[in-house]
Simulated assay, not measured.
Amino acid sequence: MTIADSTTTRRLTARGAKTRERIVTAAADLMYVGGVGATTLDDVVAASGVSKSQLYHHFTGKDAVVRAVIDLMGERVIERERDALGHVSTFAGLRRWRDALVQNNALRNGAYGCALGSFASEVADHDEIARRALSALFTEWQDLLSGVLRRLQDSGALPAEAPVEQLATGLMGALQGGYMLAQTAGDVAPMATSIDMALAHIESLSAQ
């Protein structure tokens, strides 16, 4: 389910869909790197190569563009996490997931942080529709982590009484906090440490 502005839900021609996609993709790149507040619609027009009238044909204003960007970024993140976590059922698999996230973030020395976290910090307090969409995306991501922990329970690697939902919340918190610390430090070491501490706690509950 997306939160795209209602003016974009009508049937689009192939050309119209391509134009809209160009606008949203350009806006996503600008807002992720430069921030939502610093990105103007004029910036989006220039980066996408469309006219302002074309932009307003598809979107009523900046809030609508931001919501479409959240849809796009959310789809990218959740698809990536489904691929990474969908079949993980061992602690070693969780560690590989951790390694991939840290290594990918290291390519930017922690810059820009998590796409969803960055958007949440800028818009959640000002746009209730966007806040709900971001909350749903974080819930979906956390559910993927819960699924891994349940599979660990099913295999006997975690005891049946392990609080799966709470552990998944803690792991998500460590991940998002780690992204923020890496961003401010310009170094992924704090991110690695944050996730490692959460995983070490989960592993300490391993059934004997």
Rank of each mutant, 00 (worst) to 15 (best):
I195D: 01
K18M: 13
E140N: 11
Q183C: 12
R15K: 15
L167N: 03
A92K: 13
K62C: 08
Q142K: 15
N105V: 03
S6Q: 15
E79N: 12
E128Y: 09
M191S: 02
E203A: 14
I70K: 10
L137G: 06
G93W: 10
I78E: 01
A26N: 06
S6R: 12
V24I: 15
A207K: 15
E140G: 09
V123C: 02
Q166T: 11
V164W: 00
A47N: 02
G35W: 04
F138A: 08
L72S: 11
A160E: 13
T139I: 15
A160P: 11
M73R: 15
S89P: 01
D29P: 06
T7L: 15
L171H: 04
R76K: 14
L116T: 00
V33C: 14
T8I: 08
R131G: 07
G16P: 08
T139N: 15
E128W: 09
V69Y: 06
G35D: 05
N105F: 03
R98T: 01
R98Q: 04
A27H: 06
R80I: 04
N105I: 02
A136S: 11
H126P: 05
M31R: 05
D143E: 15
R96H: 11
Q54P: 05
H58S: 11
F138N: 04
R95G: 01
N105C: 05
H201R: 12
S48T: 00
G86N: 07
G61P: 13
E128P: 13
A106E: 11
I23H: 00
D42G: 10
V45G: 01
E203T: 15
A47W: 00
T193S: 15
P159I: 12
V44E: 08
V77Y: 01
R10V: 14
R20F: 02
T40F: 09
G74M: 09
A14H: 10
E122P: 09
V102H: 08
V102C: 07
W141C: 05
V24Q: 10
G37E: 12
Y32S: 10
D187S: 14
G113K: 06
S53K: 14
I3F: 04
D99V: 08
